[in-house]
Design a protein around this nucleic acid. Structure first.
Length: 712
RNA sequence: UGCGAGGUAGUGUAAUUGGCAACAUCGGAGGCUCAUAUCCUCCAGGAUGUCGGUUCGAAUCCGGCCUUCGCAACCA
């Protein structure tokens, strides 16, 4: 692929119904920010675009629950996002929002264009409608009895008990989770994008990197898990996807299109178009043309996303862009995997997370520290793990002991020996190089080595290998420490002052190089280091490429005679009590979420005694138990009710081994209509108590009672 | 069940096309004293999840198994 003239970088639009946590940062924002800052330092024309995703059903539902207008919800999170991003130093060129007028117009325009050029298929289907809530119901908002296993709380798309995937119309006795009413079927018409027709070119584009045989990108540059995931989708066969929904919060389908009333654009269409509208907003305010970035062959588009977003950015959005004809397709989608936290998955609903806004408040001035560890533990190829202990160790061992210490040594010595004025020196003197104590080298050689390291570092970032680049950066700092150690200026100063000048001059060049090289990862520390060295602040306008040119030509980064400032620590140690406090805070929040169980399981509607007395509860003892083949969760139990024996299938296999339950006394519903589950007829249902974390416990008579006793 | 990505020193990660298993940290020993008890050197630590196959040679290629994560509601 030819060198692109300009680069457009996007980070996934955060959904405005919850705050930002470190997993988000690791997934799509820090990686993008490092990449963008680096390309700016290389003098590239690059634009970094993002914005809040503020449409869709989840926001209306949250608004309904909190008795607020959706606008209040999205405004709140939009502000929180902006604060979090600016606090942690994610340097968007433009941060937009999908509730903006410009976004609505842009989305409608694109919809109109696709509609006019006949890219949509119109289909009419029957869907469940909640007459009380006055809206169509997404599959997940419908519950009912599973037709396969009789499980009472199956969702409209899937039964969590038997694992079968369902469609809402298959459910027995469907119920709207919004109002608890039975929904009614109603016909509705939507516009579909026939993705099935895109399979061939998508496969060629993703696996070969070509479009109609013409080179688009290097397929080997894409991450294996991204390509693998896409192939999996393609091999499974793509289906036409609806691009519209029956919603009341989002972008209207353009009015002039017949049947548009009450229809909104679906998120898959709406959200990625947010990238385009955000670019437009940026262009308007900066006197640029957005089309240069979206409709020009010599522009490169890179989407930074988490792994859950791969399908949108590699299949659905490219299909939309391709259908529009004149738009560029992404050159790469360097998706990251997930970051776990202290051994568990990050979970918003379980409140198991480090919230970015809280981090900024709890550890003020430690933004670069978080950035450093986030990159160090970035889930580039596989899931990774954040631990506070690991965070503390990385910061203390690497940022404080190595990097900050090297800088401090150089600055203290320069001040001590030369009153902070970079000395004149003799470049013909031989010094110890960074690679070996025995190896004697000239200063110019050492500066070429520094160039090589910076070059490696650059290659890593261009290849989206941020962790490798971070290692390289620390390697440069280590080499600085080695040069000091091998040459021991604090000793040599007593015997050979001229040699010390050459060594110190070299170390100062290392410091200057680091002040630029750390910039993408550690913007604040970079700023502080520039100030210590009394160098002009970085504008991220080609400073790195200029510096590397100088090194390649044998020029110096700081000249003799330049005056630097007094030493000041770049980073300070993170003490035990700080991380201990954060760990307790995390554990406390988990407990709080666990005890708050009534919110998820509200008490059901009242029933009358007659309803209750219809159910025949009995005690029973488990005689035999065996696993149901090809089912993870099911045990086939033989129960003794005293007057008869029965077979009951129960979804407890994940927590109980067959041999553990034999002999246990349980309570069952004895008059539940029999139902076949995985080919076995189940004659009843065992009662289990389930806690917040999904753990099960039998409901057994307190005293060993005889079998078949009535329970009431 | 199927599909995709993983499984490598205690921990976190590397290893272009098969060719001496590398780096950081932790642990042990030594050196230095400019520096935030920091830095530098050396040592130790591994049947590369498991079983089998191809090969002169396998972490790498092939097959079986075990295991972790993910697979279009929300969520990076």
């Amino acid at each position: 692929m030819n060198q692109a003239k300009r680069i457009l970088v996007t980070s996934a639009l955060p959904y405005a119904n919850g705050p930002l946590h470190i997993g988000h940062l690791a997934g799509a924002y820090l990686s993008a920010d490092v990449y963008v800052r680096f390309q700016r330092l290389m003098g590239k024309d690059i634009v970094f675009i993002c914005g809040s995703d503020e449409n869709g059903a989840a926001i209306t539902i949250k608004a309904l629950k909190e008795k607020k207008h959706p606008k209040e919800i999205v405004d709140k999170y939009h502000e929180l996002f902006k604060q979090a991003f600016s606090g942690i130093g994610v340097s968007f060129d433009y941060y937009h929002r999908t509730s903006a007028q410009l976004h609505h117009e842009t989305s409608q325009e694109i919809f109109r264009e696709l509609y006019k050029s006949g890219k949509f298929e119109e289909k009419t289907t029957e869907q469940y409608y909640d007459t009380k809530a006055n809206q169509f119901l997404a599959d997940r908002y419908i519950k009912g009895t599973c037709p396969n296993c009789d499980y009472a709380d199956a969702y409209g798309d899937q039964c969590e008990n038997c694992g079968s995937s369902l469609s809402p119309t298959e459910l027995i006795n469907p119920i709207s989770t919004l109002t608890g009413d039975a929904p009614v079927l109603k016909t509705t018409t939507h516009w579909y994008l026939p993705l099935d027709k895109d399979e061939d070119w998508l496969r060629e584009w993703i696996t070969q990197g070509t479009i109609d045989g013409k080179e688009h990108h290097l397929a080997s540059d894409w991450k294996s898990h991204v390509v693998g995931q896409c192939k999996s989708w393609l091999d499974g066969g793509l289906l036409p996807r609806a691009m519209t929904r029956d919603l009341d919060w989002g972008v209207d389908v353009p009015q002039e299109i017949p049947g548009s009333e009450g229809k909104k654009l679906y998120v898959w269409m709406d959200a990625p178009i947010g990238y385009i509208s955000s670019t437009k907003a940026w262009a308007q305010e900066n006197g640029k043309d957005w089309k240069d970035y979206w409709q020009s062959e010599d522009s490169k588009l890179v989407h930074f996303v988490g792994k859950d977003n791969i399908v949108f950015h590699c299949i659905i959005f490219p299909s939309i862009l391709k259908a529009l004809d004149n738009y560029v397709l992404p050159t790469n989608v360097p998706a990251n995997q997930f970051m776990n936290l202290e051994g568990n998955k990050i979970s918003t609903s379980k409140n198991w997370a480090i919230w970015v806004n809280e981090y900024l408040a709890d550890l003020p001035g430690k933004e670069d520290e978080l950035r450093y560890f986030m990159v160090k533990a970035m889930p580039e190829q596989k899931d990774s793990e954040f631990t506070w202990k690991g965070f503390q160790e990385a910061i203390n061992n690497e940022l404080v002991n190595n990097l900050a210490n090297f800088i401090n040594r150089v600055i203290v010595l320069t001040n001590k020996y030369y009153e902070g004025k970079i000395p004149e020196f003799d470049d013909s003197l031989m010094i110890c190089g960074s690679d070996n104590t025995e190896d004697i080298s000239f200063l110019d050689n050492e500066l070429l080595r520094l160039f090589d390291d910076l070059n490696d570092y650059s290659h890593h970032i261009r290849a989206y290998e941020f962790r490798a680049a971070l290692n390289k950066m620390m390697e440069i700092s280590s080499k600085g420490n080695q040069i000091l150690q091998f040459n021991e200026p604090w000793k040599t100063i007593k015997t050979d002052e001229e040699l010390v000048k050459t060594v110190m001059f070299l170390c100062i060049q290392y410091g200057a190089a680091l002040s630029v090289a750390i910039r993408p990862f550690l913007p604040k520390a970079s700023e502080n280091l520039r100030a210590l060295l009394n160098l002009p602040a970085l504008k991220e306008e080609g400073e790195l490429v200029e510096m590397m040119d100088k090194l390649a030509l044998g020029e110096y980064l700081i000249e003799s005679g330049h005056q630097i400032n007094e030493a000041k620590h770049l980073f300070s140690r993170i003490e035990d009590d700080l991380v201990d406090a954060q760990i307790s805070k995390l554990n406390a929040s988990k407990v709080a979420a666990n005890t708050d169980s009534t919110s998820d399981n509200p008490i059901k509607e009242n029933i009358i005694f007659d309803d209750f007395s219809k159910i025949d509860f009995r005690t029973a003892t488990v005689l035999e138990a065996e696993k149901v083949p090809k089912a993870d969760k099911l045990l086939k139990l033989t129960l003794d009710l005293g007057f008869e024996k029965r077979t009951v299938v129960s979804g407890i296999a994940e927590q109980y081994k067959p041999e553990e339950v034999i002999g246990k006394q349980v309570t069952i519903v004895a008059n539940l209509a029999p139902r076949k589950i995985r080919g076995v007829e189940s004659q009843g249902m065992i009662l289990m108590a389930e806690n917040q974390s999904g753990k099960l416990s039998f409901i057994s008579p307190e005293k060993g009672w005889e079998e078949g006793t009535v329970v009431r």
